[in-house]
Amino acid sequence: MTENAATTSPVPERRRFAFDLKAASPFIALAALILLGAVVNPDFLTVSNLTNVVTRSAFIAIIAVGATFVIASGGLDLSVGSMAAFTAGLMILTLNKLGGAETSTLLMAMGVALMVAAACGLFNGLVVTVGKIEPFIVTLGTMGIFRSLVIFLAAGGTITLRDSGMREMYRPLYFGSVMGIPIPVIAILLVAGLGALLLYKTPFGRHVVAVGSNEDVARYSGVPVSRVRLLTYVIQGICVGIAVLIYVPRLGSATPTTGLLWELQAITAVVIGGTALRGGVGRIWGTVAGAVILELVANIMVFSNFVSEYLVGAVQGSIIIIAMLVQRSLQRAR
């Protein structure tokens, strides 16, 4: 128990511009990794490479923003990877069914994707809250369900966007850029910005943190615990939907391996970003940094000439653990 000093004034001052090392540490780790990359191979530090990496991290980053909500409220969603594949599959099938290369067709298919993903999230949320089942089990189940639905839709093969006109029209959503910034990067910034606003500045966001911090306290404070939990899963679904919108134009296809292990990457990004797995803390921008870190580590592996391809996984794992250790020691040093 901390005691008050005799000198405590009745209304203490607030430190307005305190430097929050905890929040900054994922970015410090990110900077350190970039430095490491530059040492490993000078070609690493080119605009085009770094742009590629950040652009590629878009799917995981956007999904992980949703995961930040779920995890901050004390939940977990293992189904995001399968959900992404399922949504992408349905979206492409919609495009193929409607045919043609009209803008309206594309918009309709995008709407379908967002709705499908939100519905998947809603389903997860309902089973967790109404069924009162551990989220780990629920989403492990839906992970299998969504995954086999994709395989079923693809009849084991690949779901490919057939209309080449549509393909060309849609393609810039991944490959295009506005004022030199790739569109997926803009999407990350938008989603994370909205996520941060929602989590930090709205009553709902406050409730998310409260539920994750201590469900009982939240309940005794009149917080609608079930509704808050439910909504976090819906938000997760919508984020998956947005990620799919920029995933589909990249390769124009969904396969049974689409989104494989994305759930683990998203959770890793969230944790690297400083969000506690037990809930109660959510760091949106840290999560984005975490997603970029993951992609960057894989990139550095390809760029390094001295790591045998057999050992890439080991080195990758070690770098992530070291990055976390550095972060933690930075936080403790305070």
């Binding site: 606003l197 500045k201 709205t202 009553p203 966001g205 406050r206 409730h207 943190v209 409260a210 911090s213 201590n214 009982d216 306290v217 939240a218 309940r219 005794y220 404070s221 009149g222 917080v223 109660g280 803390v281």
Partner: peptide
């Protein structure tokens, strides 16, 4: 400690938790 206050959150968050809707201005706290 178990049902009254969020021990891991700061004073402000705890103070306004139950009456949070009163601090909402056009959707934001």
């Amino acid at each position: 400690k178990g049902k009254g206050l969020l021990l891991q959150q700061d004073l402000r968050v705890n103070l306004t938790l139950a009456a949070l809707s009163r601090f909402a201005r056009s959707g934001l706290v």
